[in-house]
Amino acid sequence: MRKIALVTHPEAQHHVEQKVGGWYDTGLTERGQQQATAIAAVLGAELPQSSPIYSSDLQRTSQTAALIARSLHSQVVLDQRLREMSYGAAEGRDQAWFDQQIVYPPQSAGRLDHRVYPSSENRREVATRIYAAMESIINSAAQQLVIVTHGFAASFVIAAWIGMPLEALGLVAFQVNSGSISWLTQSAPFHNRTLASLNDTHHLAKF
């Protein structure tokens, strides 16, 4: 059975500073490192040694991936295409300020190309790069692996896995919290792709 652990990075410095994230490149807090170690312990028990790890190249994800790699004795492939949505010039600014600047999308038409901030990416741009990254990952020989990404980006990883058309992604959103593990599977003989588990955070209970 093909089995993919989809991990969202845990607590990062911009979370506690209440800054806009996106491509704003902060590392994990001390608590976030502890959370990432707990994630690594779960994956070490669920996946075989040397399972490859694909990760966004930002600090908070690459640090998470490095701790998982230590548990699995495996290598990390950093891929910029797995980054979070870019919020452009708003990145690193106070979240409270940004909340007043957001231009919310329409309820139906035009959502895929809508920008929440003038210099931000839109959903189409995020989805296009994540779908390209997922095509490379899915076409790899690895049957069991890890993908480390971000909360919003994770929805597009899942959508790519289950084969949602890009044009349908204007409305897609899976509830995925920081430090979560979701499982994507595919089994014989029908080879259907499944979202077997979404947003598991039980390993964070003591933090």
Rank of each mutant, 00 (worst) to 15 (best):
K3Y: 13
K3Q: 13
L6N: 07
L6C: 07
V7W: 08
T8K: 12
H9I: 07
Q13G: 03
H14C: 05
H15G: 02
G21C: 03
G22M: 04
G22D: 09
G22R: 12
W23E: 07
W23R: 15
Y24F: 15
L28Y: 06
T29Q: 10
R31E: 10
Q33L: 08
Q34W: 10
Q34E: 09
V42C: 14
G44R: 12
G44V: 04
E46N: 13
I53G: 08
Y54T: 00
L58H: 06
L58Y: 12
Q59D: 14
R60E: 06
R60S: 07
T64I: 12
A65Y: 00
L67D: 01
A69R: 05
R70N: 12
S71H: 10
S71V: 06
L72H: 02
Q80Y: 02
R83K: 15
R83D: 03
R83W: 04
E84Y: 12
E84R: 02
M85A: 09
M85N: 06
G88L: 06
A90P: 00
E91M: 12
D94H: 13
W97N: 05
W97G: 00
F98L: 08
D99Y: 02
S108W: 05
A109H: 05
G110S: 07
R111I: 03
L112Q: 07
D113I: 00
H114C: 13
V116I: 15
S119V: 04
S119E: 15
E121H: 08
E125Q: 15
V126D: 10
V126S: 10
A127W: 07
I130T: 06
Y131D: 08
A132R: 11
A133T: 08
M134K: 08
M134C: 13
S136I: 12
A141R: 00
A141K: 01
A141V: 02
Q144G: 03
V146Q: 03
V146R: 07
V148F: 12
T149M: 05
T149K: 08
G151T: 01
F152W: 05
A153Q: 10
A154W: 10
A159G: 06
W161L: 10
G163A: 06
M164G: 01
P165G: 08
P165D: 14
L166R: 15
E167G: 05
A168M: 13
L169H: 09
A173S: 12
A173Q: 13
A173T: 09
F174N: 03
N177W: 01
G179V: 02
S180V: 01
W183N: 01
A188Y: 11
P189H: 08
H191V: 00
N192H: 14
R193V: 10
T194L: 13
L195I: 15
A196E: 11
L198A: 07
N199K: 04
T201M: 05
T201E: 02
H203N: 10
K206H: 14
